[in-house]
Amino acid sequence: MTTLNASASPAARRTVRPIPQGRNRFERAMWLFMRFSGLALLFLALSHFGFQHIIVGTHRLTSEDTIVRWGLAGESITISQLFWRLYYGVMVLLAMLHGLNGLRQVAYDYLKNKTVYNAFMAAAAVLILAVTTMGVIALIVGVNASGATAAITR
């Protein structure tokens, strides 16, 4: 009777020879970025929702809450204010880059002409990065006192 005497190493312990890096490195990195940024955004967006609409409460939300949480531009800030600025700065940064890469995937599907694709992506990247930079700067710097006062007065 023939018995199976497998001496081959189990697949569970196999390590592939290093995959030659090069053209695939970017796509691999982007794939990982989409997974991790998606997970982070899920946490950030849900915690933002929970804080704003459950802990503070939808009907009690005012501009003053925001000012207290962010602190005023040009003034020294507390640890708590620093936390909230970074929290929303990271959320904006991840959301915009996540969206930009999603747009790249869609553009790759529909824009078959390489020149058109490159031009579209260059324009999209410049626009999105510019908006992201403005957003992150606004969040990190803090609330503009005169603007906030005007908003509350209105």
Binding site: R14, V16, R17, P18, P20, N24, E27
Partner: peptide, 12 residues
């Protein structure tokens, strides 16, 4: 041949 196949499949 996994490394070679994964290289092909790792392409864009």
């Amino acid at each position: 041949g996994a490394a070679e196949r994964l290289e092909v499949l790792g392409d864009s």
